[in-house]
Amino acid sequence: MAKKGLASVVVVSNAFVGLGKAQARSLGHPTLPLAVIAHPFGSRKREELKTVASQCVSQIITLVGLP
């Protein structure tokens, strides 16, 4: 998506930030923004996920520079 010029953000849990950054570098997008959420993610309950999601959306909006 970033290669096509579309605003792009990668959502990643904090245990995988290193992987996300390394992958972005390898793919030629070292400045690709990462929205970071707390790990672990898979075992959270639905209500907790809603909170995580709403925080994440705020991060994404900031990272893509939306007003």
Binding site: A15, F16, G18, L19, A22, Q23, S26
Partner: peptide, 10 residues
């Protein structure tokens, strides 16, 4: 491939 344990090898 660059998959070092603890880095890209997760």
């Amino acid at each position: 491939g660059g998959a070092l344990p603890g880095d890209m090898d997760r």
